[in-house]
């Protein structure tokens, strides 16, 4: 986001969500520029740490600000939000670009052949296109650690399975509709399984880093072989390779 563009930004709206929360809405669409504003406000409010702030929930297009109504008020939170929005947007977001290792196809991605055929591609094409993408973590929700990723190449958009599976393994890399994602735990899913990462996306026992990803990070998948998968899978502290900070403005509009 450049400074010159900020004067053209549409105004945000403060939408009360009961006595203990307010939604700061920047727009209604999935858009990296909207999301950058959500991230900037989230970081600025965290730095400001107004009295009574409980937590913030960044989403595609808004920031939910949760507070303790016994210690603060909507008026005081609105003032804090205004002050946070007035902070200059940092040159970099707090996000990191992270490399996620994955084995594609075979037992790890049993739907890869069918998905490739449905898209008129070879399996190698699917892997090349999927690993060539940069996926923005717009938000995490639904279950602990489940990333809502943007940036899937339209050539890989594939309607969900007619019949969802009752369980799919932890670490599955999958495609559903216009999205791709990673299973943080064994879970039901109607998405097509194309691969698997040996990383444990969410582990409450991994005290230093229970969650590998945060909203605002960018993920890139990289192909590994089975031996590397096995080695990483047996290491409970395995984390993605850090490729450096996400550059603000690097995202396509």
């Amino acid at each position: 986001m450049t400074v010159s563009s900020s004067v053209l930004l549409p105004p945000h709206r403060l939408l009360p969500a009961g006595d203990a929360a307010v939604t700061v809405e920047f727009g209604s669409t999935i858009d990296p520029l909207l999301h950058a504003r959500v991230q900037a406000l989230d970081a600025a409010l965290a730095a400001l740490a107004p009295v009574g702030l409980v937590e913030c929930v960044p989403t595609y297009r808004s920031l939910l600000v949760v507070f303790d109504p016994g210690r603060t008020s909507h008026a005081a939170m609105a003032d804090a939000i205004t002050a946070a929005l007035a902070q200059p947007v940092a040159a970099t977001t707090q996000g990191r670009r992270l490399a996620v290792p994955a084995v594609y196809g075979g037992a790890a991605g049993e739907d890869l052949p069918a998905l490739a055929e449905a898209r008129g591609l070879t399996e190698e094409d699917v892997v090349r296109i999927h690993t060539g993408g940069v996926y923005l973590v717009y938000m995490i929700g639904f279950i602990p650690g489940f990333t809502y990723l943007g940036g899937l190449d339209p050539r890989l958009h594939t309607p969900r399975r007619v019949s969802p599976r009752l369980t799919t393994p932890k670490g599955s890399v999958a495609i559903g509709g216009q999205q791709t994602g990673i299973n943080p735990i064994d879970m039901p899913s109607g998405w097509h399984l194309i691969g698997r990462t040996p990383l444990t996306v969410f582990d409450p026992e991994r005290s230093q880093r229970p969650f590998l990803f945060a909203a605002g990070d960018e993920l890139q998948f990289e192909v590994i072989d089975q031996a590397t998968f096995d080695a990483l899978a047996s290491d409970p502290l395995a984390v993605p390779r850090d490729l450096g900070p996400v550059q603000a403005g690097s995202r396509g509009g």
């Binding site: 009961g18 203990a20 929360a21 989403t59 595609y60 297009r61 939910l64 949760v66």
Partner: peptide, 11 residues
């Protein structure tokens, strides 16, 4: 159908 956003208790 909206683009998902945050849900607070009591929504």
């Amino acid at each position: 159908n909206l683009v998902s956003d945050g849900i607070t208790i009591g929504s």
